[in-house]
Design a protein around this nucleic acid. Structure first.
Lengths: 223, 223
DNA sequence: ACCTGAACACCGTTCAAGT
DNA sequence: ACCTGAACACCGTTCAAGT
């Protein structure tokens, strides 16, 4: 039975889920989560807002697809030949850098835990923990701890990006938070008061990695 | 100069920020984040939606106040005489239980890091790390790691609550996620496939505590 | 099969008008 | 000083109508 060519010719710029996701990511990166509306997206794609619904189910689906897109790129990028624990650091840093570049992803990782983005991270971290020789009985808890830590940092970065007036630099932001912390009553908040200086001067990425190492050290005590 | 009584008599049910926050928490607990609208709140308080703005600046302010209310209650509740590390576990579990009871709080903790809720947790955890004898040089990173881990779990719980159809029990939810994980290709997701059973059977609270202990063990290796 | 864009049912927030 | 509630400027989503 001969199969006829079903696929009709399409204009080069025909709408597709891929093009829609790409445009959505551009809006999210350039102007943040609040700028992504179906109207803005339709305008950028020179179409009607309803047309988008032919390719994506709804806004939630669109955000999930955009997140998967970013995370898949990261995950295929870090498949180096490093052995754990170095490989775990590489994966974690990959996620960190992706979220640094696309802060809105940080909020999306919390969504349905059967979506591709979350699964890829779980698999990547968990598999490497196994290679590291973590006992079976401790694998699930260890992976969960690393995951939740990464999620926490990711979510915090997403939240900070929402707060930051466009193009405020990180140092200025940290400085303003540190200033507020310094103004607190030292009797009521001695610890916060004390670390305010370090908050101003610390490097987010280094601190993120320090946390990963701390957890890996904890996992190391199990063996 | 005699000070006259400025305060005019008020009806017992006069509007106040306190009453508004209380009503907001009731709505959030009963029907979730999406149910909290100014219209719903005004209806519950038998007033106009605009009246609420006399007492709170906006929805963000209202959510922050509701979050502070819940967290302050937790924090004053766990001031037991336990010494670290037991005291750190108690604080962490207090936050966990609060978020279990009020899942929407989990999402709010990510907001402005100069708001009371976040500060209280930082202070409580950080102060106890100090008492535990963590070296100064490691204090900030250690506190940050614990914090971000707690935030990750909190955010995940908030997200799950959003997904859960009202009153679906946790076991059924975990079961459905585990079922999806089991259906994944074992060649592509060997680790996820493997821990799916444990996901179904695990206890969230126990696993949360296991993570805290893992991090504390890691912090212990620094000394 | 795919696209258009007006219409619908919501929101948060404002504000003139009341008491 | 505080409250009312209509009005405004948005949303996500639907859908009859087009091609």
């Amino acid at each position: 039975m001969a199969t006829r060519i079903q696929r009709t010719e399409r204009r080069a710029d025909a709408l597709s889920k891929e093009r829609i996701v790409k445009a959505a990511i551009e809006i999210l990166d350039a102007d943040g989560e609040s700028a992504l509306t179906f109207r803005a997206l339709a305008a950028r794609l020179a179409t009607g807002s309803g047309a988008i619904y032919w390719h994506v189910a709804n806004k939630s689906d669109l955000l999930a697809a955009a997140t998967d897109d970013v995370i898949t790129r990261v995950m295929t990028g870090v498949v180096g030949d490093a052995q754990p624990p170095e490989a775990i650091r590489a994966v974690a840093l990959g996620v960190f850098d992706a979220i640094d570049a696309h802060p809105w992803v940080g909020a999306q990782l919390f969504r349905e835990p059967w979506r591709s983005a979350m699964l890829q991270i779980v698999e990547s971290v968990g598999g490497r923990l196994q290679t590291l020789g973590v006992p079976d009985s401790a694998l699930f808890d260890s992976a969960s701890t690393l995951l939740n830590y990464i999620l926490g940092v990711a979510g915090q970065n997403a939240a900070n990006a929402r707060l930051l007036p466009r193009e405020t630099d990180r140092a200025a932001f940290l400085g303003s938070v540190a200033a507020r912390w310094t103004q607190l009553d030292p009797a009521e908040y001695p610890f916060v008061h004390r670390v305010a200086t370090e908050l101003r001067e610390h490097d987010d990425r280094e601190q993120f990695l320090a946390g990963i190492d701390l957890i890996l050290a904890g996992i190391g005590t199990i063996r």
